[in-house]
């Protein structure tokens, strides 16, 4: 039985695509992402592994947002794949058109990825995304979720976690940040459409992300992968901590890693010893007010309960484990 120790990564079969000397580098260096950008890291993993698995037969449709803005300011361009940016709220529909055109023009091997941030996915583009799911169009949609509108200066999106501080949910006396009981769970919305494949992933687990993308890119019909990508600027932590912050979110249960097929959860990544959410929250300035002298003591418990519910809901204690 193999174990995933460092040594095995020398074995090409088990190595992450990103660890390979000949990875495609679908997004070349020199782009304008912030230091420690989780989205840049995730997008490169997605594009490189999809490029490998499809033999280079991919095209990407990008929504407006950080990823689009930092990667292609004319005359510079980081993308080494066919890439199209149309608008903020229409990436899913544009991708539908692209996928259809490849079929009509006989390019049957071409696979299409649509990608965007949480704003273009959960808010302005949700109508187009739901339409794409409804028709089961042959597109893999990847959402890079950094939980707010980072490109415009950290405003609240419907993916912003409760009690988080953003520029439009600034905590003031009597108001503790983003209201509780709000927000959308897009992976669950995707599952409600009973599309062939839905998964969540995190940049703290690149092999898992790559595995899910490798699987999803070859499936037919609508597929949705939601990737948790911490943002040093918006969340308030040092750029060197991005991967650690992502791991803390997963290990406390706030960002469960799971897969669903045709609307049913079929597997999740178990957490051996769930960490308290406090550790994750304390590491970020967007939650600093929760630990100030005006904060109600029970407030952390509210968030802890969300994590605990996730542990149960996605059976993160290990029943799904395939091993």
């Amino acid at each position: 039985m193999t174990t995933l120790t460092i040594g095995n990564r020398l074995d090409d079969k088990d190595a992450a695509e990103q660890s390979k000397y000949n990875r495609y580098n679908g997004i070349t260096s020199g782009h304008r992402a912030c230091q420690g950008c989780g989205e840049a890291l995730a997008a490169r993993c997605v594009v490189d592994v999809a490029h490998r698995v499809t033999g280079g037969n991919i095209a990407v449709v990008n929504a407006t947002g950080c990823l689009e803005v930092f990667s292609c300011v004319y005359p510079e361009n980081s993308w080494r794949i066919p890439w199209l940016h149309s608008l903020f709220g229409n990436a899913a529909a544009v991708a539908t058109g692209v996928a259809s055109a490849f079929v009509i023009s006989g390019k049957k091997d071409m696979r299409v990825i649509a990608q965007g941030g949480d704003g273009s996915t959960s808010d302005i583009g949700l109508g187009c995304l739901s339409g794409m799911f409804d028709r089961n169009d042959d597109v893999l949609y990847v959402c890079y979720d950094n939980q707010a509108y980072m490109n415009t200066g950290v405003q609240r999106s419907s993916a912003t976690p409760i009690l988080a501080r953003t520029a439009t949910t600034l905590p003031v006396r009597g108001y503790m940040g983003n209201a509780a009981g709000t927000g959308k769970n897009v992976p669950q919305i995707a599952m409600a459409h009973e599309i062939p494949y839905v998964a969540t992933a995190s940049i703290c687990n690149i092999r898992d992300l790559e595995e899910k993308i490798s699987k999803a890119i070859l499936l037919k019909g609508s597929r949705y992968v939601h990737v948790h990508v911490p943002c040093p600027l918006g969340w308030g932590y040092p750029p060197s901590e991005t991967v650690r912050i992502a791991r803390m979110a997963v290990e406390c249960g706030l960002f469960p890693l799971f897969e669903a097929e045709n609307g049913v959860v079929v597997g999740s990544t178990p957490i051996d010893n769930p960490k308290p959410v406090e550790e994750y929250l304390r590491a970020q300035r967007r939650f600093a007010h929760l630990f100030g002298k005006n904060a109600p003591p029970e407030i952390i418990e509210t968030i802890q309960q969300i994590a605990s519910r996730n542990l149960e809901k996605y059976r993160l204690s290990g029943e799904f484990s395939h091993e």
Partner: peptide, 11 residues
């Protein structure tokens, strides 16, 4: 948007 996508993909 669908029309933009298909036209951009050459149809």
């Amino acid at each position: 948007s669908v029309t933009i996508g298909s036209q951009a993909a050459g149809v």
